[in-house]
Design a protein around this nucleic acid. Structure first.
Length: 578
DNA sequence: GCCGTTTTCGGCCCGACTGTTTTCAGTCG
């Protein structure tokens, strides 16, 4: 059992205790404990074995016992007892805006409501009206919330939200009463999935700003409106929160509203040690406010290096910033070329030449073509004859372009047993081979892990494609043990793909830091099926930054000559071993 | 439930807004 699952269980215990009306500080202790475990660098089994787990801050006597039970038996009796005492539907009900643990439990206790469906029915029957703490407004809002959840499941992928946020922001900047405005929240932190848009503005006249905001043409409904905080729903169904602060509060507020909540919490502890209090209006030493004129200055006051928004997830960034050792994060300009491109030989829309022209225009120096392999019949996977034809076409293109190079690769399907879709002598024809899973998703995590590892042990494989097969908000993917997969990549000298399709963003950024520490290179691949999708590379860059990657950690920041040398060296490696 | 050199007891991060109240609990970020 790895630390991620342990952290999840501790977190869930916290939520369950909250639902049962337990002491809020006990709840917090479990949630702090969950975070502490998540942030560990060491192997948790080892920590338990050596007893060092007791030394972890936030883990006391009870949590040590619980964690030890989880690690040694793979289970926790207390967790099961707790879980069985709380109906599962109550956790679902927490997703309805305006409903927190107290109210959910009250509904359960007094009206025996334990699912969203039951709650919806009860609202239609007006049964919430007599309940203390509830009234007609809350009943109405709950129904709206349920409708919203059903319609949109309450979440959106980054790409679909960002352009909307930019448009609203541009409109705000036109408002004369606004001094400064910015995107904040999870969108500013480049989270792959977004719940709502957070915007921040500064003004002397917040009331007028709010009036201006709610009358924007995209606004479909006003949820709440105050002097400093207003929430609306756009015609596209997404929530937007606008906060307005005084001009000299802007940068400390920007930090506050960018979050994450966990990052802010740790920042407050950090500040407290220096005798400074942080709230959304600024930094305070006693009664006296310390005014800052940029976010850089905000961090400086607290003795920290500037932490870019994408790193603010409480994954050790504050500690490292204190030492001044944050990485210099990779940029789009560092990318020399891109791999994992589909042409009309398989399921891509464009031909090779169209893709090359677009790539040149985008400033790339090389492309790595990788169409589907023969088993992927649905996607027009390449038969042997087509491979040879494509090879000739690529050689032809390469002879025409002096300042651009096309590498010939393949996206080879990984079969259920981990074997690849072509014989070795066919795989040997390519400059590079991306091994990916496209079928048989319903396997255990253990089998998925073994399947990927077996594929990576094939000496002809260069890269592992979209390691979990997830589709954001759509498909969970097979759930391999990513730490084992990354270790195997290291042992077999395999590059791991960060699939930059906004629907995938797979490998998950949460594992990038580990891959970096292990010295496994990451390739940011757009998985483009049409020329416009070459530009999806930017979403991969955002995730790479979120995962702490610097230029040197990313394979396709290498020049065309460096890539050629790398592939040639690999080829020699397996030619001599075969 | 966790923590600690002012403490082994009594604290634990902070504030806005809503809907319910008639001064505030609950939710949210």
């Amino acid at each position: 059992m790895d630390k991620k699952i342990i952290a999840q269980i501790l977190h869930e215990i916290g939520v369950l205790l909250e639902l049962k009306g337990e002491n809020q500080f006990k709840v917090r202790a479990y949630q702090n404990g969950a975070r502490a475990i998540e942030m560990l660098n060491e192997d948790i089994k080892q920590l338990v074995k050596t007893g060092k787990i007791e030394e972890v801050k936030g883990i006391g006597k009870t949590l040590v016992e619980n964690i030890t039970e989880l690690v040694t038996t793979g289970d926790l009796k207390y967790y099961h007892e707790l879980k069985s005492s709380v109906p599962e539907g109550l956790l679902e009900m927490l997703k309805i805006p305006g409903l927190g643990p107290k109210k959910v439990f009250k509904l359960y206790e007094t009206l025996s409501i334990s699912t969203i469906a039951e709650l919806e029915y009860a609202c239609h029957e007006n049964r919430l009206l007599d309940l203390k703490g509830f009234g007609p407004k809350s009943q109405e809002n709950i129904l709206k919330g349920i409708e919203h959840i059903k319609k949109f499941q309450g979440q959106f992928i980054y790409r679909d939200v960002y352009s909307q946020a930019e448009k609203i922001l541009a409109k705000l900047k036109e408002c004369q009463e606004i001094n400064e405005a910015s995107i904040a929240g999870s969108l500013r932190r480049f989270k792959e999935v977004i719940k709502d848009i957070d915007l921040l503005a500064s003004s002397e006249k917040p009331g007028q700003v709010m009036e201006y905001f709610i009358h924007l043409p995209q606004v479909a409904e006003v949820i709440s409106k105050g002097e400093t905080k207003t929430s609306v729903i756009l015609d596209t169904g997404i929530n937007v929160d606008l906060r307005v602060v005084a001009p000299d509060e802007f940068y400390s507020a920007l930090h506050h509203f960018t979050g994450s909540k966990e990052h802010n919490t740790t920042m407050r502890y950090q500040a407290k040690n220096l005798g400074i209090k942080i709230n959304e209006y600024g930094l305070f030493k006693g009664e006296k406010r310390i005014i800052v004129n940029s976010e850089e200055e905000f961090f400086q006051v607290l003795g920290l290096q500037y932490i870019p928004p994408e790193l603010r997830e409480n994954m050790g960034e504050i500690e490292i910033a204190e030492k001044g050792q944050l990485p210099n994060l990779v940029n789009l300009e560092d990318i020399q070329g891109i791999f994992h491109i589909h042409t009309n030989f398989s399921d891509g829309i464009n031909n090779l030449e169209e893709l090359v022209l677009e790539a040149k225009q985008a400033g790339f120096k090389y492309l790595g073509i990788s169409d589907h392999s023969q088993t992927a019949v649905y996607a027009g996977g390449l038969k042997i004859e087509a491979i040879k034809r494509q090879r000739e076409e690529i050689q032809n293109i390469n002879s025409q372009h002096q300042d651009f190079y096309v590498f010939h690769g393949i996206e080879a399907d990984i079969h259920a047993d981990g074997s690849l879709d072509y014989r070795d002598e066919i795989l040997a024809l390519f400059d590079f081979v991306i091994a990916s899973v496209h079928s048989g998703f319903n396997i255990s995590g253990e089998r998925a892990t073994q399947r990927l590892i077996t594929a990576m042990e094939n000496p002809y494989v260069t890269m592992l494609g979209h390691p979990t097969g997830r589709i954001l908000l759509g498909r969970k993917g097979y759930e391999p043990d990513m730490e084992k997969v990354i270790k195997a990549a290291k042992e077999n000298n395999i590059i791991i793909e960060l699939n930059a399709s906004p629907y995938r963003l797979d490998i998950d950024w949460r594992y990038l830091k580990y891959a970096k520490e292990m010295g496994v290179k990451i390739s940011i691949n757009p998985d483009a099926h049409r020329k416009e999708e070459l530009y999806d590379t930017i979403f991969g860059i955002k995730m790479a930054r979120k995962g702490w990657l610097a230029k040197d950690d990313v394979f396709n920041t290498m020049t065309v000559q460096e890539v050629r040398d790398y592939f040639n060296k690999r080829k020699k490696g397996y030619e001599s071993s075969v």
